[in-house]
């Protein structure tokens, strides 16, 4: 009898914990994806972007979510099976959340073609699912940060890539990106690129935020600069180029024009990369 009661109670708490997790996921999805749900260019991209690029984005999102779940999973995911489950749940939260918000904003109507409806929801479900994943972990219980944990080098780079992707997704679809790269000269691009690198290093090492990184007194500053900041900037630029290409922002431009756009988007991407190292 007592055993049954105990197991029923634990089932009950397991169930309510799961519901709380879902609610956090929805909150995270809204919190992170609302800026994109309310961006005009994202609605248009939903119907005009090339379907193979949309498919690529939607498929690339799956390993990203799994790796993210493995790294920061909300139930302290240890096994890959749990990570895959968490990733599926996050994607599962992202799709209906985007569909409901888009419908509530009057952007999904019955007279639209199926391709347009699905395209809009599929595109928005990517940031929403990342938001759901982050929401489940970041809005949840505080991690026991006093425990010693170490981040392997490759997952440090992966976290930077996730942060860069997140800010890039926010900014890459906007027309401002294109206009900026047309207004800027190459000198401007050079300055932006140097500022990005300096900020990336400064945010993580010099400014003492909670979660900031520090160097042992005997390590010269350029050790971390070469091992973390520069690879991080390369990751940020790669992510920025990938998102610009997926959102068809590169067109038939010459190489130097493409590079200027990549550096402009690389600025927020670099900040996102540095932010991810501090937060995640």
């Amino acid at each position: 009898m007592t055993d049954d009661a105990a197991s029923a109670e634990s089932d009950q708490s397991e169930f309510s914990r799961f519901i709380t997790g879902l609610a956090r996921g929805v909150a995270g999805a809204l919190f992170f994806a609302l800026p994109m749900l309310m961006t005009m260019e994202m609605w248009y991209l939903g119907f005009y972007m090339a379907r193979e690029r949309l498919l690529l984005l939607v498929i690339l999102n799956i390993p990203l979510l799994v790796l993210l779940a493995h790294r920061i999973g909300f139930e302290k995911t240890v096994s890959w099976r749990d990570a895959v489950r968490d990733a599926i749940v996050a994607y599962g939260i992202g799709i209906p959340t985007s569909a409901i918000v888009l419908a509530a904003l009057g952007l999904l109507r019955g007279d639209m073609s199926a391709s347009e409806l699905i395209g809009k929801i599929a595109l928005q479900s990517v940031p929403a699912s990342i938001g759901a994943m982050l929401g489940r972990s970041q809005l949840g219980d505080e991690d026991d940060d006093t425990e010693r944990k170490s981040t392997p080098y490759h997952s440090e780079l992966f976290l930077m890539g996730t942060g860069a992707l997140f800010l890039s997704l926010n900014i890459a679809p906007t027309d401002e990106m294109i206009v900026l790269s047309y207004k800027m000269t190459i000198w401007h691009a050079l300055v932006i690129s140097l500022i990005s690198i300096a900020l990336m290093h400064g945010l993580v090492y010099a400014v003492s935020f909670m979660g900031g990184h520090e160097l042992s007194p005997e390590t010269p500053w350029w050790h971390a600069f070469v091992r973390f900041t520069l690879p991080g900037y390369v990751v940020a630029l790669t992510v920025s180029m990938l998102t610009l290409w997926i959102f068809e922002r590169l067109g038939d431009s010459s190489a130097i024009e493409i590079m200027v756009s990549v550096i402009v988007l690389g600025f927020p991407a670099a900040l996102g990369a540095a932010g991810a190292r501090l937060i995640l």
Partner: peptide, 10 residues
């Protein structure tokens, strides 16, 4: 990178 008391040390 090692984490200790919220600070991380390379």
């Amino acid at each position: 990178t090692k984490s200790e008391n919220g600070r991380r040390r390379e």
